[in-house]
Simulated scan of single mutants.
Amino acid sequence: MGELLGVAVLGAGHMGADHIRRLDRMVSGARVAAVADPDEARAREAVAGVDGVVVHAEAEAALDTPGVEAVLIASPGPAHEEALLAAFARGLPVLCEKPMAPESAGALRVVEAEARLGRRLAQVGFMRRYDAEYRRLKAVLDDGGLGRPLMLHCVHRNVSSPPGFTSAMLIDSSVSHEIDAARWLLGQELTAVTVLRPRPSAGAPQGLWDPQFALFETDGGVLVDVEVFVNCGFGYQVRCEAVCESGSVRVGDDRGPLVTAGGSAATPVPQDYLVRFAEAYDREVQSWVDATRRGLVTGPTAWDGYAASAVAEAGVRALERGARVTVDLAPRPALYA
Rank of each mutant, 00 (worst) to 15 (best):
215 L>Q: 13
215 L>G: 02
216 F>E: 07
216 F>Y: 15
216 F>T: 07
216 F>M: 11
217 E>L: 05
218 T>Q: 12
219 D>F: 12
220 G>V: 07
220 G>S: 12
222 V>T: 14
222 V>H: 10
223 L>V: 11
224 V>A: 11
224 V>W: 12
224 V>G: 10
224 V>N: 14
224 V>D: 11
224 V>K: 11
227 E>W: 15
227 E>K: 08
228 V>E: 09
228 V>A: 12
233 G>D: 04
233 G>Y: 05
234 F>T: 11
234 F>D: 07
237 Q>R: 14
238 V>H: 09
240 C>I: 09
241 E>R: 15
241 E>V: 07
242 A>C: 04
243 V>E: 07
243 V>M: 04
244 C>G: 03
246 S>L: 13
246 S>I: 00
246 S>F: 04
247 G>R: 09
250 R>L: 15
250 R>H: 13
251 V>K: 10
251 V>H: 03
253 D>F: 04
254 D>Q: 09
255 R>K: 10
256 G>F: 00
256 G>I: 00
257 P>C: 06
258 L>F: 01
258 L>N: 00
259 V>R: 12
261 A>G: 14
262 G>H: 15
263 G>W: 08
264 S>E: 13
264 S>I: 05
264 S>W: 09
265 A>H: 00
268 P>Q: 01
270 P>M: 02
271 Q>N: 02
271 Q>T: 01
273 Y>M: 01
273 Y>I: 00
274 L>E: 03
274 L>S: 11
276 R>K: 14
279 E>M: 01
279 E>S: 11
280 A>S: 14
281 Y>V: 00
283 R>M: 00
284 E>K: 02
284 E>W: 11
285 V>K: 01
289 V>R: 06
290 D>A: 15
290 D>Y: 05
293 R>Q: 13
294 R>V: 04
297 V>S: 15
300 P>F: 09
301 T>Q: 08
303 W>N: 11
303 W>Y: 11
303 W>A: 08
304 D>C: 15
307 A>E: 10
309 S>V: 02
310 A>V: 06
311 V>T: 14
312 A>Y: 04
313 E>M: 10
313 E>V: 07
315 G>H: 09
316 V>I: 04
317 R>H: 11
317 R>I: 06
319 L>C: 05
321 R>E: 08
322 G>W: 05
324 R>K: 13
328 D>Y: 01
330 A>W: 03
331 P>H: 08
332 R>K: 15
332 R>N: 07
